[in-house]
């Protein structure tokens, strides 16, 4: 398994929306390298004929009835908002808006 580069970590940090300094990227790249070496063993036993499990219990078709239930009040909905204007969440300008 090839090591993970600082550029790759920087790309992942962008995808994950986490600002990182160069030194953080370097430190993390080293740690991820050792973690990835440790976890790569999963590939040894993951044969094509083994089906993946995503849910621990084999439940299916869990639905609810199409019934309206009470919503939060707008005060409750906005109670944790860092900023608000007229019952809307106020956020910094959204770039790339279409």
């Amino acid at each position: 398994m090839a090591g993970i580069s600082r550029d790759e970590v920087a790309h992942l940090a962008r995808l994950a929306r986490i600002e990182m300094s160069d030194s953080e990227l370097d430190h993390l790249a080293t740690q991820l390298d050792s973690i990835l070496v440790a976890v790569a063993s999963v590939q040894e036993v993951a044969q094509a004929d083994v089906s993946p499990t995503s849910h621990p219990l084999p439940l299916t078709n869990v639905t609810r009835e199409d019934v309206v239930r009470p919503s939060l009040s707008s005060e409750e909905a906005l109670s944790g908002a860092p900023a608000q204007v007229e019952d809307r969440f106020k956020v910094p300008q959204i770039l790339g808006e279409e």
Partner: peptide, 21 residues
């Protein structure tokens, strides 16, 4: 983020789900 990203999904996340089985 790495384990789910395209190109690595099968090798990491996908394999891990098989180990689960």
């Amino acid at each position: 983020t790495y384990a789910l990203s395209s190109g690595y999904y099968d090798a990491y996340y996908g394999s891990a789900q098989k180990v689960r089985t």
